[in-house]
Simulated assay, not measured.
Amino acid sequence: MAGNRARIAVDAMGGDYAPIEIIKGAIRASKELDVDILLVGNRQQIQASFQDSSKFSNIEIVDADEIIAMHEGINELRRKPKASINVAMDLVKKNRADAVISAGHSGAAMGAATLKLGRLKGIDRPAIGAVFPTLIANKSVIVLDVGANVDCRPKYLEQFALMGTIYSKYVMGINTPKVGLLNIGEESSKGNDLALATHKLLENNETIPFIGNAEGRDILSGKFDVIVCDGFVGNVLLKFAEAVGDVVLQIMHEELPQGWRGLLGTFILKSNLKKLKQRIDHAEHGGGLLLGVAGICIISHGSSRAPSIFNAIRLAKEAIDHKVLEQINSYGDKLIPESPN
């Protein structure tokens, strides 16, 4: 990477609306962000959706003739070495790219990242961190894990808490992030065996600014900057939050008056409605950062359209610019993984 200019590999074939929407998002990023884009996938399909590619000197097409479909298992990673997600990860491994974006098979993306890039020092399991809005304007909370690890051990959640702390501190600009453990009550005696054991680990780790348990109602309150949970609970939470955002926007659309009054009201509230959409629409966040692997990897929603892909590229650039990998590595000796890296 030359100077502050990042090179982002984008899996052009991954997602429900690939490659057209993926390409649209990449084109916007190439215009508005200081990045070079490597579109990875079938050259003919990409070019068919991208007729004026010669106009963009900072976009390059990288051939990948295979795809791992949503219904296929992660075992296809080995059977399809030329799959777009494999080729994209290889670009990072070979230092031809600084980050990978994929809206395709999330299991395949996680598997490829772990197999090809490896884990960072002190990390047993990578985690997907998702950023949620809160009731406090311009304040977000990062929740992890939201899907990479369905079954977790206490040590994994301790590692998630440290990675979330680092991300909140260096990317979100929170000097002393407030870390919480998602639980069914505020008291330290509440929860299942995993929550009880994790609470003790977090309490005793001086590197993690742990302030106690977070109940479901606390997630969006702004009280916490980082909330940790296992990937099963986190993924349910993520999908529920996405649905709530869509429902709120749909209800607002339906409840606005019809005819000229509705048009007038929409015009008057236009800036407010735009801000509301930015705060609650999951597309505005782009996806989740896979923390714990030795490379920047953003896993976007399978239903991502151009705005979400643009925001995923923006998120990747922020992680690169703030040296998230280096920061996590610098704390690696604070954690003792349960299994050798």
Rank of each mutant, 00 (worst) to 15 (best):
L91P: 03
L91D: 05
L91I: 09
L91M: 14
V92F: 10
K93G: 00
K94V: 03
K94D: 09
K94N: 15
N95K: 15
N95I: 00
R96N: 14
R96C: 04
A97Q: 04
A97T: 11
D98C: 14
D98P: 13
D98L: 13
A99S: 10
A99R: 05
V100R: 02
V100F: 06
I101Q: 02
S102P: 11
A103G: 07
A103L: 12
A103V: 11
A103H: 07
G104H: 04
G104T: 02
G104W: 04
H105P: 06
S106G: 09
S106H: 04
S106P: 09
S106Q: 06
S106R: 08
G107M: 06
G107T: 08
G107S: 06
A108C: 09
A109D: 07
A109Y: 02
A109S: 14
A109H: 01
M110W: 03
G111F: 09
G111K: 08
G111I: 10
G111E: 00
A112N: 07
A112D: 03
A112W: 01
A112T: 02
A112H: 01
A112P: 01
A113P: 10
A113I: 04
A113H: 05
T114P: 00
T114E: 01
T114N: 12
T114H: 09
L115A: 10
L115V: 12
L115I: 14
L115W: 07
K116S: 09
K116V: 12
L117C: 03
G118I: 01
G118W: 01
R119S: 03
R119Y: 00
L120E: 05
L120A: 01
L120Y: 02
L120G: 01
K121L: 07
K121D: 13
G122E: 12
G122K: 05
G122H: 04
G122F: 06
G122L: 12
I123G: 03
I123W: 08
D124Q: 06
D124M: 08
R125P: 10
R125H: 14
P126S: 02
P126I: 05
A127T: 04
I128C: 01
I128M: 10
I128L: 15
I128H: 06
G129K: 00
G129Y: 08
G129H: 07
G129R: 03
A130I: 05
A130S: 12
A130C: 13
A130L: 08
A130D: 12
F132V: 12
F132T: 12
P133F: 13
P133L: 12
P133C: 14
P133E: 11
P133D: 15
P133K: 12
T134A: 10
L135D: 00
L135Y: 13
L135F: 12
L135K: 14
L135Q: 13
A137F: 07
A137G: 00
A137D: 14
A137V: 12
A137W: 11
A137E: 14
A137M: 09
N138V: 02
N138P: 09
N138Y: 13
N138W: 05
K139F: 14
K139M: 15
K139P: 14
S140W: 03
S140F: 09
V141Q: 04
I142K: 01
I142Q: 03
I142Y: 04
I142G: 06
V143A: 07
V143T: 10
V143P: 04
V143K: 01
L144A: 06
L144N: 08
L144I: 08
